[in-house]
Amino acid sequence: MPILITFVWIGLGLALQVILFNHLPLFGGVVLSYLYLVLRLPVDWNRNLQILAGFLVGLIVDIFCNTPGLHALACSTTMWMRVPLLHMFIVQDDIKNGCPTYHRLGFSIFSKFLLSMLLLHCVVLFLVESFTLFNFLNLILKIVMSVILSFLVLWVADMANTSK
């Protein structure tokens, strides 16, 4: 049953992205709420499945944005690096079961983990999207704003979801 709830939450993040955040540019960045996947998918899952889940979520966002392959590439890359990145911050045994939530990791590790995940995702996403460094300042602004906005939204979502 818990896995079903996980899917519902990930689906909710995805739906919010497609319905709301795709149409809502804020201070030059975009909120990436579908990355709630990074926080909700259990870490002890088979890593191949994690990457595949990332790919599918990315592909669904792609279909609604008309950017076939773009989000899928960025998302599967993010999910591939997820477990190695998490291990950089904590000892392996600490995350044997469940998700990397705020309550489990504490603010410092949680924010380090989420920020680096978001940064990786945004850099891949926006670099591939523009394919050039022509509009460099614009690109940096987009990456930084998107990371900050997404961090705030995902953090609030995680707090609200796990405080019960």
């Binding site: 191949n48 990315g58 899928a72 590439l73």
Partner: peptide
């Protein structure tokens, strides 16, 4: 394993992108 899964999916994405 994870690397090859990622590689296959990334190649597929890039084909779509191109």
């Amino acid at each position: 394993g994870p690397f090859f899964t990622w590689l296959v999916l990334a190649v597929f994405s890039i084909v779509l992108l191109c």
